[in-house]
Amino acid sequence: MFENLTSLEWLLWLILAGLLLFGLMAVNALAAVYAERKLSAFMQDRLGPMGQGAGFHAGKWGMLQTVADALKLILKEDIIPRAADRRLFIIAPYIIFIGAFIAIAALPFSEYIQVIDINLGIFYLLAVCSLGVVGLITAGWASDNKWSLYGALRSAAQIVSYEIPAALSIIVVVMLTSTLDLQGIIRSQEGVIWGILPNWIIFNNPFAFLAFFIYFISGVAETNRTPFDIPEAESELVAGFHTEYSGMRWAFFFLSEYANMFIVCGIATVAFLGGWQSPVPGFMDSGAWGLFWFFGKVLFLIFVMIWFRWTFPRLRVDQLMGVAWKVLLPLALLNIFGVGLWSLYIG
């Protein structure tokens, strides 16, 4: 279908795909914020956002609350501090946003729906995730505010540290599937293993099981969420690297943060949980059901992240680095060794 397109048609398809992805990111952020507020409320025995009066102001059960918040953000004044570096201040949110955007474009939503299918898939995803850090440091630096700077430094150190165990646990997946292509990784997780379990990488062997948790914990840390939210710890650093941002620029950070949650959960789904494959082979696994399973798994993992946030206390800076370098990294290295032995002698 796409082989014989003229340049103009190709460009139009590209723009359409971009708009759809942007829509996905926006809807994802709106839904995730609503879920976050409601879930946190239920976990704390509150009601969360509710429609006031006749259930009209913010919709039934407060469902329009985040829409109202988004509208408010669009209308808010855009403030750039006088001491800030204007150009860097303006460019920083876009760098972070582009990093999230080009990563989400490579995720396989179903067997047939994927914007860019590259044979380096998972490697590409790991590579472009580092772009966000650059934007983050730029934002912290350009704000000319010490809270921002400390937030940016902490955040960059944290993301760079946790990238290593995350990448090492993805290597386990690549070893087991011997491909970097996302669709290839998903296809190799077809069928049944151990009699009843789906043949997902997480169930393949004990080391892969551990690798999933190492990846997911590192992923939570890479999105700067509690219990790893040192970079924007509101009780110490006001709001971390985005202290000085307001209005739409701040909304871009927000959008990217929730998109990053989606990406981390998406990678975990593709690499360990069979992507768009049904948990029961042959059951609801054709055509559009792929979309259902992919989004179902991703949304479940996002729910787990929200659950983390409202149940775990925040780690201290030294504990944070200790977890990455003294616990997760050795475990991830051991995992690679173990999976190698397993595939040689048992698998």
């Binding site: 490697f123 790991l126 590579a127 995730c129 580092s130 772009l131 850090v133 650059v134 440091i137 730029t138 912290g140 630096w141 700077l149 940016a152 430094l153 960059a156 150190a157 760079v160 990238e163």
Partner: peptide, 16 residues
């Protein structure tokens, strides 16, 4: 991965 994710971030760290 190496130049942006590693070296550039190291440079930025150095500056900060």
């Amino acid at each position: 991965l190496i130049y942006i994710g590693g070296i550039l971030i190291l440079i930025l760290f150095g500056i900060m």
